[in-house]
Simulated scan of single mutants.
Amino acid sequence: MSRAARSRIRWNGDAVLGRARQGAVRGLRLGAEHLLAESRTEVPIAEGTLERSGTSTVDEHELVAGVTYDTPYARRVHEDLSARHSPGRKAKFLEDPANREAAVIGELIAAQVRRALRG
């Protein structure tokens, strides 16, 4: 009769999850900054106030990122499809880049998670 092989397994699940979370936060930050930069190329410019009001944020606890434009008229300008703007500037200046860049943003997040798990 042969002796049964013995092995030990060391579970590092909490450490792995922590690293993945840190990577996700970095990826969300990069993704939100990417979206902000893309949307700034389309935001209508009169005096530049609307463009300068753009910010990106990340809620690290909820793993949610956001891009906002914070002026009293930002929503109206974003939604008014009948307004005339300078060439290259338009309504839906945040929604359109968000839809167009969704795959790029997803890859930015995934790349940071992969990087964190390798380290």
Rank of each mutant, 00 (worst) to 15 (best):
M1D: 10
S2Q: 08
S2V: 15
S2E: 14
S2Y: 06
R3D: 07
R3H: 04
A4K: 14
A4M: 11
A5E: 02
A5L: 08
R6F: 04
S7A: 11
S7D: 07
R8E: 07
I9S: 09
R10P: 00
N12G: 05
D14H: 08
D14P: 05
D14N: 09
A15F: 01
A15D: 14
A15H: 09
V16Y: 01
V16R: 03
V16N: 02
V16G: 03
L17G: 07
R19F: 06
R19M: 13
R21Y: 06
R21E: 12
Q22T: 03
G23W: 11
G23E: 09
G23C: 10
R26Q: 09
G27N: 11
G27Q: 12
L28D: 00
L28A: 04
R29G: 15
L30F: 06
G31M: 10
G31K: 10
H34T: 09
L35A: 03
L36Y: 02
A37M: 10
A37N: 13
E38K: 14
S39C: 08
R40Y: 02
R40Q: 15
R40I: 09
T41N: 14
T41D: 15
T41W: 06
V43T: 12
P44H: 10
P44M: 05
A46D: 14
A46T: 11
E47A: 08
G48Q: 11
L50E: 01
E51H: 03
R52T: 00
S53N: 06
T57Y: 14
T57A: 14
T57M: 13
V58F: 03
H61L: 15
E62R: 13
A65Q: 09
A65E: 03
G66N: 13
G66M: 03
T68Y: 01
T68A: 05
D70Q: 13
D70E: 15
P72Y: 01
P72L: 02
A74V: 03
A74Q: 03
A74R: 01
R76K: 14
V77N: 03
H78K: 03
E79W: 02
D80M: 06
D80W: 04
D80Y: 05
L81M: 06
S82R: 12
R84I: 13
H85K: 02
H85L: 03
S86R: 15
S86F: 09
G88V: 11
G88I: 12
R89N: 09
K90Y: 04
K90P: 00
A91T: 00
K92M: 12
F93L: 05
E95Y: 08
P97Y: 05
P97T: 08
P97A: 10
A98I: 01
A98E: 11
A98V: 05
R100K: 10
R100N: 07
E101C: 04
E101D: 11
V104G: 00
I105H: 07
G106S: 05
E107M: 02
I109L: 04
I109D: 11
I109E: 07
A110L: 14
A111N: 13
A111Q: 14
A111C: 04
Q112V: 04
Q112I: 01
V113L: 02
V113W: 07
V113C: 05
A116H: 05
A116S: 10
L117S: 03
L117F: 08
R118G: 13
R118V: 09
R118T: 11
G119R: 13
G119A: 15
G119I: 02
